[in-house]
Design a protein around this nucleic acid. Sequence first.
DNA 1: AAGTCAATCAACCGCACAGTG
DNA 2: TCACTGTGCGGTTGATTGACT
Length: 374
Amino acid sequence: MGRSPCCDKVNLKKGPWTVEEDQKLLAYVEKHGHGSWRALPAKAGLQRCGKSCRLRWTNYLRPDIKRGEFSPQEEKTIIQLHALLGNRWSAIASHLPKRTDNEIKNYWNTHLKKRLAKVGIDPCTLKATSNTLSSADGRPRSAANLSHMAQWESARLEAEARLARESKLRAASGSMNLQQQQQQQMRSSSLGEPISSPCLDVLRERKNTPGENVDLESPTSTLSFPENRPPTTESGTGLVDGDVAVAPASQQGSENSEPEGAEWRFSGNDTTDCLTGFSVEAFDGEAPWLSEPYASQAGCSWGQFGAGFTGMLLGEFGEQKTRDHSRDSHTNGHETCADEEEEEGEENRNYWNSILNWVNSPSSSSSPVSYNPD
DNA sequence: AAGTCAATCAACCGCACAGTG
DNA sequence: TCACTGTGCGGTTGATTGACT
């Protein structure tokens, strides 16, 4: 059958955008919204294909884009989410406000992947190429549990992404034009209000709807896991000694990756249920730490419990690298260059190890800040 | 100063999927 | 159900920039 080309490529400009083109696109979108990307170039007087315009807008011109250095917190988030989701950059980007998937992808490929490799971790599989991830007693860590978490989180993120899209659509078609939205966002920022994620906006909107009873603690709740967390079951994970990593290979290249026998059940046609209505039985016997009793122990609903995973991912341990850095800055000048390099290398290793240990340990409630390489 | 190489990142390309008639 | 369109996503490319020789 074949697809028609997205645009007539004759007489279309390619390559870097000029300031003039940017201004045209910006002016048009601010005034009219983008509408149909295919029709936009002609209307805006641009010799570009619609796809190129969309890309330029979403990756560069959009007003809500943060550019520049990634913070340590953002780095960790990327690493953790990449461990769970693989190269699903848009899903990862949905957890990093103001960052584009393209930017995250580039940052991963040019920085993070290399740094992980440098400290002896295979960036693709997160398997240690050295003994990086072995636990203190030399035993391998459980991978299967995290795999389940990955599957759970993956499905949840997809639902979130869908909600985000819906929210955007609603915003686009709503009465508020782009400038009003920007102004509102700027007001929020200047007042110190957190800029909420689109999916949360949707949820809030739903909560305000009569008859809707939506738990708003998720998806990025600050819930932390309790001290009496579920015990890690090393047995029954199917792990062989030496298996220390957790790349959810099943996630990569396969969208239908639920565990065998697992049944994803969504109650009703409410998209919110997708976030809160997973069948607990799906994991019975396979991942006990993911089951209802443990959620109860955590003092929250199953939905909250699951949502807390995201909170756990994104919260709390953002200080590690900062702390490392400040320690670096307090290093006095008595050490030799070799010592400094060695120490820096060691700290760097510890930093990454702590992240990966934490990522790889589903039973972890503690921050990697407390990681002790000894 | 000139040449070379590597790193970075904006942009392109092709595919997949959802929506629509 | 099918054909088609529009859009989003992820992989890849290539221009630019900076470091090094």
